[in-house]
């Protein structure tokens, strides 16, 4: 046993700098497409046609991205005439609940938060990323956040997946079993919009179809830092991002 203690001590502190400072380590996030100003008009049509989940839409002078629909297939980035811009970010969580109602709850929640995770038909990648927030790099305990096995003591319900038909009742019951006040954080494109799977005969096409969602973390899957951001947004310790990435304002032409 002494060997393990030594091994642990020798490994040292591995925690991410986030949320105090940005984490710039390579590979912590795949980044994501963002609203892009395009040179040619037909390039926008090509991008819209290539997107399998209708996450890309034409807008004046370019395309905007509905992040809740994007499944990170890279088809708007690779082998394409004019590619969308890519932002190397991870603060992706957006508020999708009623902001005014949320603010009243902050005092109760912000310093000790218990989270119950529910898999509502997730593919495994969202779940794996959610598991990573407990690893030594992301270490959510240092932020006063804990994973709890029972909904009875949970403040936040963290849900991944498009809500498969058989999971609709377990999800509703888990939500009902939580004491109020409570919040729901939906992670991943499937939980936000059904992603590649739904809506269909077998999936509802998003968590909001069955329980109210306060914070949506888009991504396929959202990296661990984005999930941490989602939890921090839920208690207003971090400002939210937008779910729609609009076309950026035109750069001012030099005179």
């Amino acid at each position: 046993m002494a060997n393990w203690v030594l091994k642990g001590l020798r490994t040292g502190v591995k925690s991410s700098a986030y949320p105090g400072r940005p984490d710039s380590a390579l590979g912590v996030s795949p980044g994501r497409p963002t609203g892009t100003r395009l040179k040619s008009a037909t390039a926008g049509d090509e991008l819209v046609a290539r997107c399998p989940t209708r996450a890309i839409a034409r807008e004046d002078g370019g395309v905007r991205i509905d992040q809740g629909r994007c499944v990170h297939c890279f088809r708007c980035r690779r082998d394409v005439g004019e590619a969308v811009a890519w932002e190397p970010s991870y603060e992706w969580a957006a508020e999708t609940g009623e902001a005014a109602a949320m603010r009243k709850l902050v005092g109760i929640f912000s310093r000790s938060l218990h989270v119950r995770f529910v898999d509502a038909g997730a593919c495994g990648a969202c779940m794996s990323e959610a598991r990573q927030i407990n690893n030594p790099y992301y270490n959510l305990h240092r932020l006063g956040i804990f994973i709890t096995p029972t909904p009875r003591s949970a403040d936040i319900l963290l849900v991944a997946g498009p809500v498969s038909d058989a999971m609709r009742l377990p999800l509703r019951k888990t939500y009902a079993a939580m004491p109020t006040p409570k919040r729901v954080v939906a992670i991943g494109a499937c939980a936000a919009s059904g992603g590649i799977f739904g809506p269909s005969f077998a999936a509802l096409g998003g968590v909001a179809e069955i329980i109210p969602v306060d914070v949506t973390v888009p991504g396929c899957p959202p990296p661990p830092l984005a999930i941490l951001h989602g939890l921090l947004v839920a208690v207003e310790r971090k400002p939210p991002a937008a779910l729609i990435s609009a076309v950026p304002a035109p750069a001012t032409e030099p005179a």
Binding site: T11, G27, F74
Partner: peptide
């Protein structure tokens, strides 16, 4: 031991992201 294995796992996820742009090799 779980923490050590998790550190290795995370470094492989980061490596996957560096070489293919995605932590789970999607696409």
């Amino acid at each position: 031991a779980a923490a050590q294995a998790a550190l290795i796992e995370e470094s492989l996820l980061r490596l996957s992201c560096e070489i293919t742009g995605h932590r789970y090799l999607f696409g």
